[in-house]
Amino acid sequence: MPMSDVKSSRVILITGPARSGKSEWGERLAAQSATQFGQRVVYVATAIAPTDDAEWLARVEAHRNRRPADWETLEVSHHLAKAIAAAAPDTCLLVDSLGTWLANLLEQDEETWAETQAELLHCLEQAQAQVILIAEETGWGVVPAYPLGRRFRDRLGTLTRKIGAIANPVYLVTGGYALNLSALGTQIDG
């Protein structure tokens, strides 16, 4: 991505499968915003870290170790829209990840989830800060055999598509490569 595109992109969406390099690509774009344009980077961690899960804690630590020391960390497990709305214009928010945030809210009924989703989309459309969102691709496999799995997959797919309509660029990261879908593809309305 040319440096000028990083500055002019208010909402950037990065999606892809597990271990594809999504977070690293988001970190690279956020670092460009900081070094080239003087933006303050705030890493928005959406996970609720269980303290008794050593493997999970190791994953969190690996993410921390990759980030520059001057980046701030904001833990936002539920109120992502409020964090986006409160961010100053000279800020780059790196939200990692939408799937984890959605999982924290998965027990919401359909009406409450629709309100939560609408609030997030509204805040993204009105954002003064740059927002880089990392989203997992979960719908490329079999349909989950249980209702909660289907709810997660369907909600994340719909949310990612709606954010994709707001974001520019939208990246697909797979196999360690980032593809700019905004430049290569055609957006589907609806």
Results as ranks from 00 to 15, higher is better:
residue 36 Q to D: 14
residue 39 Q to R: 12
residue 40 R to Q: 15
residue 46 T to I: 02
residue 46 T to M: 05
residue 52 D to T: 10
residue 52 D to Q: 08
residue 54 A to I: 09
residue 55 E to M: 11
residue 57 L to R: 08
residue 58 A to V: 06
residue 59 R to A: 00
residue 61 E to I: 05
residue 62 A to W: 05
residue 63 H to M: 04
residue 66 R to G: 05
residue 68 P to F: 00
residue 72 E to A: 08
residue 78 H to M: 10
residue 80 L to W: 00
residue 83 A to L: 02
residue 86 A to V: 02
residue 87 A to R: 00
residue 90 D to F: 01
residue 91 T to Q: 04
residue 93 L to V: 00
residue 93 L to K: 01
residue 94 L to G: 04
residue 95 V to M: 11
residue 97 S to T: 14
residue 101 W to Y: 09
residue 102 L to P: 08
residue 105 L to Q: 10
residue 110 E to A: 07
residue 113 W to S: 08
residue 113 W to Q: 06
residue 113 W to L: 13
residue 115 E to N: 15
residue 118 A to H: 03
residue 118 A to Q: 09
residue 121 L to D: 01
residue 122 H to V: 05
residue 123 C to L: 14
residue 124 L to V: 00
residue 125 E to V: 05
residue 126 Q to M: 11
residue 126 Q to G: 10
residue 134 I to V: 15
residue 141 G to P: 00
residue 141 G to K: 09
residue 142 V to N: 13
residue 142 V to I: 14
residue 142 V to E: 10
residue 144 P to T: 06
residue 145 A to C: 14
residue 145 A to L: 15
residue 146 Y to C: 05
residue 147 P to H: 04
residue 148 L to V: 11
residue 148 L to C: 10
residue 148 L to M: 04
residue 150 R to L: 06
residue 153 R to E: 13
residue 154 D to P: 08
residue 157 G to S: 09
residue 161 R to H: 12
residue 162 K to D: 07
residue 163 I to L: 00
residue 163 I to Y: 03
residue 164 G to L: 04
residue 165 A to Y: 11
residue 166 I to E: 02
residue 170 V to F: 03
